[in-house]
Design a protein around this nucleic acid. Structure first.
Length: 813
RNA sequence: GCGCGGAUGGCGGAAUUGGUAGACGCGAGGGACUUAAAAUCCCUUGUCCAAAAGACGUGCGGGUUCGAUUCCCGCUCUGCGCACCA
């Protein structure tokens, strides 16, 4: 008998698949239903992938492989996230140019992915740093610009001193840069933005209907952060200015005893007088200097200064002081608040510290002693006294509207997406600045704006990228008037490049359009998408672009990903998250090359835990799945080499029952992303077959043919090499990986007996086999006669007998 | 602080969503084969008790129910996300 040796078969089949184009998809073929699935675009930032990434990529591989076998025109595309900060930083680290560093790293990535046997269509490989790709990224930028969804604005922005670039809100994590982990500060710069807030409400509402992992949906919703409230105008004493604040609690307006402006608020300096000017100036300056981390580490002790001016509370007509404090954020609402110290914890802390008046306007429930921010009945609120807060919210706003000093308002936490980067390695923003015509989009026929080669690409600091010093590139002419003009020197955020790649995947060679809307109509949306990261930024950005494309009629659906599975991490043996920076990664090559091969690793990756649970890596698990595959191998060999045999009716039905049950279970488990139990049920099936072959023998017979062939088919997505090998050995010419999936027939799953669980007072006392058609009376009689039952019951009479048909009898005494 | 998860043997994890807790795998122990080892095959393996019978067992404390890992109330620990968002 031939022995199972992965190295004899894996390379052989990989070569054969490549040669035959087994996984290549004809994108114009509509004779079969389509299925497209893939995992998030891998970023090329280091030596290669570790087993955690491998698991992520494999989820989509299994899904697509199963569909391909089930008769779909199934497409598993692959591409590279090649532009952006991570690649550039990696290049700096290893002392090479980004393109060179990237291309070298890519060699190993591809080697790993190919060795793992993923069913990618390599003929359609895509890279975001390829001019034939970023030409269209730039084109999309121009389209957004034309539709007023891209704009330039000067405002304080997150700045990473280490990476020498601005960052989008989504790329600042707890006050630190997402790449280098160093604290960020704010810098006032003129920057390019995408108006993602335009679709905030639409995206928020669409979120609930997505078939996505709930946690990600929640994170998206929180990030969009919708709150409904009102804008309220406060007049400033002895001045013409008005200060507008945003509040979700207009019902507490009578309790507003002071106003607070963010240090960055434009009116701050004009509200000062000779006495306060210096103090306020110093405070504002100090706030600007502080990084977000420092602000947060202040143990939240409130700081602030009085401006010297007063505003008028529109309800009470009272004079209330205007303060400046950094607990008010410039970027949210109007950058100014009305402080209601009695009913807001932060305002209360501030008022206590600076001895500002506190007026209660909501009656506290009896048990509340602390500051109360809940609902209740209004007090000290003039005509609104006695009104419940929910009603007062509307009534007070209505009253303000009458006075034209307020209006209802919805605010979002999400800010517009800042997309300029002062870095070299990215798609140049396709804009030309002309003295006469301002920012002019580079005409479509002049795209791509090629990123010029430079000797030293490293950031030089300041507010521009190194492109600013490439004079013959920067100096150009205005597309509108032909006069000398200068190119925009910022590059696009790498996240922009990866916000539409799924559309390029379905039309990768199109050189007249980014993609064909007709092709999109067939192939969009993506059926399956997964990843272990980017729960907010990438997904939000992609949804924003997609919504824009949808409004232009370029795609059939406003959502890019029908199904998004957010999978968990593999933890390193040291209990920490596996990561290159911690030096605890495990390279899949090591495991495969130590003799176990790709299939054993693949099966273990799926078997280790449910997809959404972090799983600690245990290297001893791979020999376990190797043993399983070895048992499959042996079983198949015994079948192939066995003689023709006769099996009696009982044996046939037992063998077929296992086969059909397992076919059903594995098919359903894959559909529901329960890959771990799919594997275990195949293990169970093999264990059963081992017992059955002891009893009935194994060899050529109809039942064994069904058992062996269907086992190979359902195992194929998990272990594509061994199953292909055996599939041919049992006599098939065609590959197992296309159009080969077993059906199941429920008639083989029903047994003619049932197992009745016998309980007395809810405690298990016995199990009983009964014919399937036994009546309630027959079952109960048999149960009451059972020795274990009579023993426990003694001479007591049952007060109640509960019968769950076909399942259980519980006797209550 | 707020939001969303999780907690089951020595370990990773199953359990038809209220009906036999611990499937499957790892580890451990025993046996077969072998001169021997590896590989392979078979058996045992939640805890207590010498064993049987039995009792106890799904983070903790209550509750609902004939019956709770599953539902409800109150906690503890832990992972993740957001973090002064008015």
């Amino acid at each position: 008998m031939k022995r199972y040796n992965p190295s004899d078969i894996e390379q052989k089949w990989q070569d054969k698949w490549e040669q035959d184009g087994t996984y290549e998809v004809d994108l114009t073929d509509s004779t079969k239903p389509k299925y497209v699935g893939f995992s998030m675009l891998p970023g090329i930032t280091g030596a290669g992938i570790h087993i955690g990434h491998g698991r992520t990529f494999q989820f989509s591989d299994i899904k697509v492989r199963a569909k391909r076998q089930q008769g779909f025109n199934a497409y598993h595309p692959i591409g590279w996230d090649s532009f952006g900060l991570p690649v550039e930083n990696y290049a700096i680290k290893i002392g090479k140019k980004p393109r060179e560093a990237h291309d070298e790293a890519l060699i190993n990535f591809k080697k790993q992915l190919k060795r793992l046997g993923y069913s990618y269509d390599w003929s359609k490989e895509t890279s975001t740093a390829d001019p034939s790709y970023y030409r269209w990224t730039q084109w999309i930028f121009s389209q957004l610009y034309k539709h007023n969804l891209a704009y330039q604005k000067e405002s304080p922005q997150w700045w990473c001193e280490t990476d020498q670039t601005v960052l989008a809100n989504e790329q600042v994590e707890a006050g630190k840069c997402w790449r280098c982990g160093n604290p960020v500060t704010k810098k006032n710069l003129k920057q390019w933005f995408f108006k993602i807030t335009e679709y905030a409400d639409e995206m928020l509402e669409a979120t609930d209907d997505l078939d996505w992992t709930d946690m990600v949906k929640t994170m998206q919703k929180n990030w969009i952060g919708k709150s409904q409230g009102a804008e309220i105008d406060f007049t400033v004493e002895n001045r013409d200015e008005r200060i507008t604040v945003f509040s979700t609690r207009p019902d507490t307006l009578f309790g507003a005893t002071f106003l607070v402006l963010a240090p960055e608020h434009p009116l701050v300096m004009s509200l000062t007088n000779d006495e306060t000017k210096e103090t306020v100036e110093a405070y504002v300056e100090q706030a600007a200097r502080q990084s977000e981390i420092e602000r947060m580490n202040d143990t939240r002790e409130k700081t602030g200064v009085f401006t010297g001016s007063h505003a008028i509370n529109p309800t009470t007509g009272e004079k209330i002081p205007i303060w400046v404090a950094d607990y008010v954020l410039a970027g949210y609402g109007t950058g100014a608040i009305m402080a209601v110290p009695a009913h807001d914890e932060r305002d209360g802390a501030f008022a206590e510290k600076f001895k500002l008046p506190i007026v209660e306007v909501i009656e506290k429930p009896n048990h509340e002693t602390a500051r109360y921010d809940g609902e209740g009945i209004l007090i000290n609120s003039g005509a609104f006294d006695g009104m419940p807060t929910s009603e007062a919210r509307e009534e007070i706003v209505a009253w303000l509207e009458q006075q034209s000093s307020g209006r209802t308002k919805t605010t979002y936490k999400m800010r517009d997406w800042l997309i300029s980067r002062q870095r070299y390695w990215g798609a140049p923003i396709p804009i030309i600045h002309c003295d006469e015509h301002g920012a002019v989009a580079v005409p479509d026929d002049q795209l791509p704006v090629i990123l010029p080669e430079v000797e030293d690409f490293k950031p030089k600091g300041g507010a521009t990228s190194v492109l600013a010093s490439v004079e013959d590139w920067v100096n150009t002419t205005c597309p509108t008037c032909g006069k000398p003009a200068k190119r925009e020197t910022d590059t696009l955020d790498g996240y922009a490049c990866s916000s539409w790649y799924f559309l390029r995947y379905i039309d990768p060679f199109n050189d007249t359009e980014a993609w064909s809307p007709d092709v999109a109509k067939h192939w969009q949306p993506v059926d399956f998408y997964n990843g272990a990261d980017h729960a907010v930024a990438h997904l939000l950005y992609s949804r924003f672009w997609m919504r824009f494309f949808y409004k232009q009629g370029w795609v059939p659906d406003p959502e890019p990903f029908k199904r998004m599975m957010y999978n968990a991490y593999i933890m390193a043996p040291d209990g920490r998250k596996m990561s290159k920076s911690l030096g605890n990664v495990i390279d899949p090559m090591e495991i495969m090359d130590s003799g176990y091969g790709a299939d054993s690793l693949r099966v273990y990756e799926m078997f280790i835990a449910p997809y959404d649970m972090d799983a600690p890596w245990d290297t001893r698990g791979v020999p376990g799945t190797y043993r399983f595959l070895n048992r499959v191998w042996t079983l198949a060999q015994e079948y192939i080499e066995g003689n023709e045999i006769e099996i009696d009716q009982k044996g046939v039905s037992e063998i077929l029952a296992v086969a059909h049950k397992t076919n059903k279970k594995v098919t359903e488990d894959i559909e529901h992303d329960k890959f771990n139990t799919a594997v275990s049920s195949m293990m169970e099936a093999v264990n059963s077959y081992y017992k059955l072959k002891e009893t009935y023998g194994i060899g050529k017979s109809e039942a064994w043919t069904v058992a062996i062939e269907s086992l190979l088919q359902i195992l194929a997505p998990f272990a594509p090499h061994i199953t292909e090998e055996l599939w041919h050995e049992v006599g098939h010419e065609q590959t197992i990986h296309v159009d080969a999936w077993p059906a199941w027939d429920e008639k083989y799953l029903v047994s003619d007996t049932m197992t009745i669980v016998v309980q007395v007072n809810g405690k298990l006392r016995a199990t009983l086999r009964m014919p399937k058609d036994a009546t309630k009376e027959e079952v109960e009689t048999a149960v009451l006669a059972h020795a274990n039952v009579t023993l426990v019951m003694g001479d007591k009479k049952p007060t109640k007998v509960i019968y769950v048909p076909g399942r259980l009898v519980n006797i209550v005494i």
